[in-house]
Write a protein that binds this DNA or RNA. Structure first.
Lengths: 139, 139
DNA sequence: GTTGACCCTGTAGTCTACTCCGGGATTATG
DNA sequence: CATAATCCCGGAGTAGACTACAGGGTCAAC
């Protein structure tokens, strides 16, 4: 397969020229060789690299974490390290899910108590928001 | 009750001086009267206002949305509008929870397939990220 | 009365992941 | 050959919610 210009790489991988240059600055995509005109010339493997980044993003990894994963891959490190990152990310997600579910439950409860019409200032939701939120903040 | 300087308000409400001034710029906290020295002098009700903001934040509302909620309260609008915002926020949360749960499920599946030790380049997790088709997400 | 805590304004920096812009060189298309 | 598309670089702007100065005035405690 021929080398790809950044534009063709972007199109092939479903990414964007500016995004690829940004990933290069961030160290996620290695600097490719340049043609005589100074254009970046990517090997076909760059497509896989971008797809890796995209998929890791859909799994909740940050670019910094993806850079770590790519380093583990490039260094062919022990898969235990990869598994550890996966476990950590699951724990992060569990925490965030639990937080969101708690919020959601409170909102559902408040909504249930607010029926019909009437002034907002006697709306149970507004009233709840005006209660003392922090049971422990002293003074 | 005496008026509060911004520092005492911050302490009482469990907030921060800079944060309160920021909320003022954002229109969440009304500009209070000033003393002869130019100091902000807050009525006791400002504490409730800050607590409202804090509590709404813990329920997932953005500052822009909280500003809307406060406007509904201040204008004593119909509680139907408050309920609508609460419903919308629940829908947002449901969407985010679903996204996170999907990510979490994929990670759990991948982790299960990666056992013991060995080179990362043959790690099922890394391999999945390198697949042409996404591990669980449609193309 | 002097030190240190507190207050003022306005601006700038932080984090994440881009996205856009200007100005200029090169290549592809008709 | 003219024009459009693409490429280069460096830097600035975006959103959200703060957080941190700089530089200067004021107030409370010892």
């Amino acid at each position: 397969m021929q080398d790809l210009t950044i534009g063709r790489l972007a199109k092939t991988a479903g990414s964007d020229v500016e995004t690829i240059r940004y990933y290069e600055r961030r160290g996620l995509v290695p600097e490719p060789p340049r043609g005589r005109n100074g254009y970046r010339l990517y090997p076909a493997s760059a497509v896989a690299r971008l797809r890796f980044i995209q998929r890791a993003k859909t799994l909740g990894f940050s670019l910094a974490e993806i850079a770590d994963l790519l380093r583990l891959q490039d260094a062919n490190a022990d898969r235990g390290e990869v598994r550890a990152m996966t476990r950590q990310k699951q724990a992060d997600l569990d925490q965030r899910i639990a937080d969101l579910q708690r919020m959601r439950a409170v909102l559902a409860d408040l909504e249930e108590r607010c029926t019909g019409h009437g002034p907002a200032q006697s709306c149970p939701i507004i009233e709840a928001l005006n209660q003392h939120a922090s049971p422990e903040v002293a003074e």
